[in-house]
Nucleic acid binder design. Sequence first.
DNA 1: CTGTTAGCGCCTTCAA
DNA 2: TTGAAGGCGCTAACAG
Lengths: 342, 342
Amino acid sequence: MENTEVTIHDIAAILGIDSSTVSRALNNSPRVAEKTKNKILEKANELGYQRNHLASNLRKNKTYTLGVIVPRISRDFFSSTISGIEETAFKAGYNVIICQSLESLEREENIIKTLLSNRVDGVLISISMETTNYKHLEGLKKRNIPYVFFDRHCNIEGNSNVLIDDFDAAFVATEHLITKKSEVIAHFSGPQNLEIYKNRFKGYKAALKKYNIPFSKELVISSSLMESDGEENVKKLLTLPYKLDGLFCANDVVAIGAIKYLKNIKVEIPKDIAIVGFSNESISSVIDPSLTTINQPGLEIGITATNLLISQIDDKSKIITNETIIVKTNLIERNSSLRVFE
Amino acid sequence: MENTEVTIHDIAAILGIDSSTVSRALNNSPRVAEKTKNKILEKANELGYQRNHLASNLRKNKTYTLGVIVPRISRDFFSSTISGIEETAFKAGYNVIICQSLESLEREENIIKTLLSNRVDGVLISISMETTNYKHLEGLKKRNIPYVFFDRHCNIEGNSNVLIDDFDAAFVATEHLITKKSEVIAHFSGPQNLEIYKNRFKGYKAALKKYNIPFSKELVISSSLMESDGEENVKKLLTLPYKLDGLFCANDVVAIGAIKYLKNIKVEIPKDIAIVGFSNESISSVIDPSLTTINQPGLEIGITATNLLISQIDDKSKIITNETIIVKTNLIERNSSLRVFE
DNA sequence: CTGTTAGCGCCTTCAA
DNA sequence: TTGAAGGCGCTAACAG
């Protein structure tokens, strides 16, 4: 009762032919007579045969499995991305092992080892907050296993990336505030070892510069992307001797924390708040109708990254082509009737 | 350069011993001399050996892989659950193959086949909206592969489930509205072939009954859980000759759609809206401060379900024990200052 | 078109 | 304590 799995040998024995013929038939090889093929498929179906991928993959030295590493699955952006990854991979006949680094470099290193042991054919990765060295990725490179960064990437040569244009998105967001007659605009930033937050910061500064608005270091508050940071950041902000009229928040979770706290203490939302980081338009729009957001298309990023990775797996010569695909974002403006900080 | 993976044979050859000894050492068998074991481990480390799980699993007829089937990964509740599943599985040395049925029975059937081919050791499943027969699960049963339902289960004997108490949650939510002096309470329901929505509906009716409030069929509107349904439902509701003063919505996505639309047409939110289905407290609270929600602890459900499944894998005799674990929910009441429908 | 043979890398008896 | 041998289920030469 335990090990009653049907094998090609069972089918072969019943039909009085060789297992290799059965194998060929099941792989739809042209080198089998149509008649025997039908006979085999029929019998396989009858017996409920299911190919043992373990064995097949071992033999072919390919697993049809992709590794995916994200900081945290339950983050809205990443869950959208994973959704796209899973769907695209599934269609192409790949499975996906999803792992969360939980923002820990150590975990990220262990995950890479696990993925290596599982002989994944490729890896999609969005690095953790702690990741500043990339030694653990060398194992992949050495083994010629392609990997593609999405969103949180490393700014080093020879990698493939699927990103949004963080600089531009931040620039547009900040400019939007400025054209709404905001002059004192705070920026809730993210960890500066992550390129995306560096670039969002740069975009913010560039927009200020364009409109000759002085940049104040104190108005930039970094954090570790927790919701509680939103509250903390607002508290800090309120102690400063500025008359704020705008806020550009580079991360959705922090933004949620901030808005929640603002509502709580009955300080109304600024003239306008621009936020980069909301991937799920449907939720962000409902959170506050006065919110202007940058829509980060998680699904599309997932799909694009997966297709790129699979193309590299299929044709390893593409790995060396260090390619960066930029997925479009768009700024979604909403009615901004609410006032703030004044 | 291609296939440079280090194998136990490589290690054995270098050390002039047999591969079986190496295997034993790497599996920390007591049947190897401490001295040789150290020598082997050292060399393995030096060469960057990574066990080939494919081969190992093929031999052991175990994959250390769990299959997970959810309707849609990007749904907040499911992404939280997956987060818990992944974490628990990872700790126990299991990988997870995550698949989305996208609410399609046909896809669900195909997924089961894929999981069988991948020889998963167990399956966690939350069924699709279309799933009314369970033939496809018989493949698992026949093969003695344990499976655990979470949230969306089947009301049939001999299964293991990890659920919330939907009846009770709905009862409490409706009662909450009633004690807030609501009498005409609408109910946005879900597909009635899913037990959870049946039970939420029952809970709603039971609460009305307890307080001698007449039940009106027209006030119950079912849907297919899309955000657009929220809008549609509200439209339908507004054509009815009732003076509504409460709404119990059994699904978060529908609720979001409803609230969005209400805000849009400037019809204010009811005295209070109770929603069952928000797993992510942090988002739901920020969506509208007047919202009362039932917190569905996705993370905990994921952890609990995974632990249960693994215990069944480790001890197959537990499979027959048809066990249902109820994870606690809690009603989160918020300041309900807003008015509505009046 | 089909069968024979030989592994993929690992683990597990069985002997020594 | 170690080695030898065989096989998990499948596939890919190579013959025939």
